[in-house]
Design a protein around this nucleic acid. Structure first.
Length: 373
DNA sequence: AAATCGTGGGA
DNA sequence: TTCCCAAGATT
């Protein structure tokens, strides 16, 4: 099946930007961005990021804030943090020369077995195996591998198969052929078996089990999470805070937030924010909540417009505090959820409703008039 | 080793 | 609207 699949790949592969380069750094970047993320989403991010950080040395030398800003909106932000750390290790441990073997690569932050094998095979031609979601699905069907995703025996079988299959011509292209086949033909729903180049050897196809392999993974119901956000305008700025490195949205900026319960009153939430920020806050009004559905979280952001003092510049509850104009805030690493909340606040005229500071600044035109309730 | 970590697109 | 989930790594 090695030959037919490779031939199919040569005829049918998509023209993706990272397939036009042999730069290990650029290929690595694509692999990290593609983790749990769809190709169409990654393409513009990859091009922008590469223009901003053209080499591993440039990335290593950049401030983490710039890296997180470049990752803004892509999700799984630990990837950006690990990418940055790994770039610095490439410079320090390997003299800026990208390590060429899976064995070395896997010692870098953010490199697991998959990413190490992908970079080693695609960028350096090492016959290193990979098993991602696509490959797992393709091999499960071809060889009728049983077991749920995550099952130890199943994973071991898949890696053993991938290891055996990648020995041969053009290991990087073969690995990509496996993935490409899984992404476009041997896809999860309604696979296109009539177009499959290796149908004759597929056990699941012969037995009519294509639709039942592999079994879908069981997913826990998302838990609810309520955050109360302080929308605190002053002199054309808003207060922003940097979250802890670990956990949800780690290291990203936000409108200062505290976790609350669904039934927590606005007054109590304001009090919690006062304590957290070390300031006496007055609730001036509320804005519509912003809801976001994450894989594991059902997120509700409750926006509280507040005033008060003294205005803090640091806090024990946050890594860092900063008063930023809306324009300055655009350069902060921020989750999409928080970006939506910020856009909502600005769109409702929270800057304009502030007592004007001479000379009066115009609120950014976000469309809607203030409809504060 | 089961849980955690985001997002946008498609059904 | 709601649900599902895609080129995984980390603890």
């Amino acid at each position: 099946m090695h030959g037919p699949l490779l031939a199919w790949y040569d005829r049918n592969k998509r023209d993706l930007p990272w397939r036009r380069t042999r730069d290990p750094y650029a290929i690595w970047l694509s692999e990290v961005m593609l983790q749990q993320t769809q190709v169409a989403t990654v393409i513009p991010y990859w091009e922008r990021f590469l223009a901003r950080f053209p080499t591993v040395k440039a990335l290593a030398a950049a401030p983490l804030d710039d890296v997180l800003s470049g990752w803004k909106g892509l999700g799984y932000y630990t990837r950006a943090r690990n990418l940055h750390r790994a770039a610095q290790e490439v410079v320090e441990r390997f003299g800026g020369k990208f390590p060429a073997t899976a064995e070395e690569l896997i010692t870098l932050p953010g490199f697991g077995r998959y990413t190490a094998g992908a970079v080693a095979s695609i960028a350096f031609g090492e016959p290193a195996p990979i098993v991602d979601g696509n490959v797992a699905r393709v091999l499960s069907r071809l060889f009728e591998v049983e077991g749920l995703p995550g099952d130890r025996d199943r994973e071991a079988t898949l890696w053993a198969l991938a290891t055996a299959l990648v020995q041969g011509e053009r290991p990087g292209d073969f690995n990509q052929a496996l993935m490409e086949h899984g992404a476009t033909t041997c896809r999860p729903e309604s696979p296109l078996c009539l177009l499959c180049p290796v149908r004759d050897g597929c056990f699941a196809y012969r037995k009519g089990r294509v639709d039942e392999l592999p079994p879908a993974k069981v997913r826990a119901a998302p838990r609810k999470l309520f955050l109360a956000l302080a929308v605190w305008p002053h002199a054309g700025t808003l207060l922003f805070a940097r979250r802890a490195d670990k956990g949800l949205f780690g290291g990203l900026w936000e409108l200062p937030a505290v976790e609350v319960e669904e039934e927590t009153s606005e007054a109590d939430a304001t009090q919690r924010l006062s304590t957290t920020l070390g300031a006496a806050l007055t609730l001036e009004g509320t804005l519509d909540s912003v809801r976001r559905q994450l894989t594991h979280r059902d997120l509700t952001l409750r926006l509280l417009r507040v005033s008060g003092g003294p205005r803090p510049t640091h806090s024990t509850a946050f890594q860092e505090l900063r008063w930023c104009t809306p324009q300055e805030a655009e350069a902060l690493g921020m989750s999409t959820a928080m970006q939506r909340a910020l856009d909502a606040a600005l769109g409702h005229g929270v800057m304009a409703s502030e007592a004007p500071v001479a000379p009066a600044k115009k609120a950014p035109g976000r469309g809607r008039k203030a409809t504060e309730r």
